[in-house]
Design a binder for these strands. Sequence first.
DNA 1: CGTGCGCTTGACTTTTTTCAATAAAGGTGG
DNA 2: CCACCTTTATTGAAAAAAGTCAAGCGCACG
Lengths: 229, 229
Amino acid sequence: MKLISQIASVPLFQGLARKQYEDLAMIVVDHVFKRGQSIFGEEDEATGFYVVISGRVKIFKLSTEGKEQTLHIFGPGEPFGEVAVFTGRRFPANAEALEETRVFFFPRKEFIELIRKDPSLALNLLAVLSQRLRRFSALVENLSLKEVPGRLAAYLLYLGEGKKEANDLTLEISKNQLASLLGTIPETLSRILARMTREGFLESSGQRGIRILNRTGLEELASGGRRLS
Amino acid sequence: MKLISQIASVPLFQGLARKQYEDLAMIVVDHVFKRGQSIFGEEDEATGFYVVISGRVKIFKLSTEGKEQTLHIFGPGEPFGEVAVFTGRRFPANAEALEETRVFFFPRKEFIELIRKDPSLALNLLAVLSQRLRRFSALVENLSLKEVPGRLAAYLLYLGEGKKEANDLTLEISKNQLASLLGTIPETLSRILARMTREGFLESSGQRGIRILNRTGLEELASGGRRLS
DNA sequence: CGTGCGCTTGACTTTTTTCAATAAAGGTGG
DNA sequence: CCACCTTTATTGAAAAAAGTCAAGCGCACG
């Protein structure tokens, strides 16, 4: 059946027994959201979590002044909202479809029931969360470099981690938001990107594309062993 | 038996069935480390994870130039090294006892076997990891404030979270290391602490103690709605 | 009792932010 | 498909913040 093969193709559910897939198929709720439509809001009850099947989902927070800060963009195969399922009962951020997006929703209660029945599911989840935790702590390290060029270099390398085309990056957030994530402002980011381009570290293609030309150079910047001239 | 009640008092294992505690007691390895002794090193095989029973454990990384960066200090009841158990097979950092420290070691293979037998253990673990992930993402948000006073204020508030005496803080890392975590240098941190003291936001007691005197003021700094004069 | 490490302070330099003005891109509706 | 409009990105010059270098203090430790 189509549903089961779709579930089986989600990395989070890789390597489960046939029976498990059938059980998952029993509790899953198929949802389609239109571009711009909200999937859940901050402070909403977390009644379950989602997996993106097709399309893209933006996770973001709104500051008190109403400014939007994108935390992450999830694409096909990626789960989101799981953290809330196991801690609080509320989502800590908002989720919205960036384009026509299909998601599978797994209701909290039923899902936990499933875990109780077969723990291999839990082991998969633990692996996913652990992985994320590791990446996060790497990010924290990066952000503590004291100068912006170093932070930017570290971030770009971090972006390429575990990709085939590690030199061809696509920013999943706007440069304004990247600036904010790096603890700086768009003007500074823009200037530093310009300098890096001038010095042959990278080249940008379009608004979101960045190609790394001198990986070693970036690594030196990120480790503080070198500075932009 | 003593062992079981000690295991039961670990938050990570709260609320399990009697049988579970007995199983855990079967696989646990009791270890005592002297002050300064290494518990594991970066790149060591992660054959299991630890829970602090008494004493304190420092988790740190060494930079290429041999400088030490403390990531965390764990005290009684707290688990460490779990992430490595579920992802890679190697630890991403070093662990060392800060004082005479007793830890329980849970071997990976046997522990995973236990999870397979009873998933409520897995649910506890999932909750702990999720919680940590949440705190981490809050930390990332804090570190992205563009000025140091804001980052410091956010960090101090973050430290006090979920404590009874939220205004009486004890830094668990040296000010040098705090500076590094905040993406700045000790001199700047020192000056900013001095300014904050002069303006009545806080007062410091001893080298590691900080008392918050004006929480609202710090919150305004952290949100960018106010600056030090 | 000296040595070392961590913390503080001062004067000076460099980096980053601010403010303001333009340029480019992307989406919208005709 | 094009013109328009709003959002996003870039650039310059002046102001502010943070970093560097150097020196001194104080407490813990051997």
